[in-house]
Simulated scan of single mutants.
Amino acid sequence: MEERFSNHRDEPLTSDDLNVCDSVLRDLTAEYDLPERDALRLAAIIIELYRQGVHDREQLKLLSGATLEGRQ
């Protein structure tokens, strides 16, 4: 029997997970008035951070928002 090792990052996000990510994305896009192209990049960053274990909204905003510094 082959034993499979699964990575938590490979698990699908739940609707609750997506709600957290969406909330952070909405806050940051409004704060920085981002064009769609930049918002899509930011969404990918937020999801990646979430998959890596950052589930606190404020921590997600802080870490993903750091990629936007200098835009205001």
Score class of each variant (00 low, 15 high):
Glu58Asp: 15
Asn7Asp: 05
Pro35Ala: 08
Asp27Ala: 06
Thr14Tyr: 09
Val54Asn: 09
Glu48Asp: 15
Glu69Asp: 14
Asn7Pro: 01
Gly65Tyr: 02
Ile46Phe: 03
Leu18Phe: 06
Ala43His: 11
Leu60Gly: 02
Tyr32Met: 12
Ala39Ser: 14
Ser6Trp: 00
Asp22Gln: 13
Leu25Phe: 01
Val20Leu: 11
Gln72Ile: 04
Ile45Ala: 09
Val54Ser: 09
Leu63Trp: 04
Ile46Trp: 03
Ser6Val: 01
Pro12Asp: 10
Leu49Arg: 14
Tyr50Met: 05
Arg51Tyr: 04
Arg57Gly: 00
Pro35Gln: 07
Leu25Ala: 08
Val24Glu: 04
His8Cys: 00
Ile46Leu: 11
Thr67Pro: 00
Asp27Val: 02
Thr14Asp: 08
Arg9Ser: 01
Gly65Lys: 03
Ser15Asp: 15
Arg57Met: 06
Ser15Trp: 09
Glu11Asn: 11
His8Pro: 05
Ala30Met: 15
Phe5Pro: 01
Glu58Gly: 09
Ser6Gly: 03
Ser15Ala: 15
Lys61Gln: 15
Thr67Glu: 10
Leu18Tyr: 04
Arg71His: 09
His55Thr: 12
Gln72Asn: 08
Met1Arg: 12
Tyr50Gly: 00
Leu62Arg: 15
Tyr32Cys: 11
Leu34Ser: 01
Arg51Phe: 02
Asp38Asn: 10
Ser23Asn: 15
Asn7Val: 07
Asp33Trp: 01
Arg57His: 09
Leu40Phe: 10
Thr67Met: 10
Gln59Tyr: 04
Arg37Cys: 10
Leu60Glu: 00
Glu31Cys: 00
Leu13Phe: 04
Glu58Asn: 14
Pro35Asn: 12
Gly65Asn: 06
Arg71Asn: 09
Ser6Glu: 07
Arg9Val: 04
Leu62Ile: 11
Arg71Ile: 11
Asn7Ser: 09
Glu3Thr: 02
Gly53Lys: 05
Arg57Ala: 11
Leu40His: 13
Asp56Leu: 07
Leu62Cys: 12
Asp17Tyr: 02
Lys61Asp: 03
Pro35Gly: 03
Thr29Trp: 04
Leu42Ala: 07
Ile45His: 08
Leu18Gln: 15
Gly53Met: 06
Met1Ser: 14
Ala39Val: 07
Thr29Arg: 15
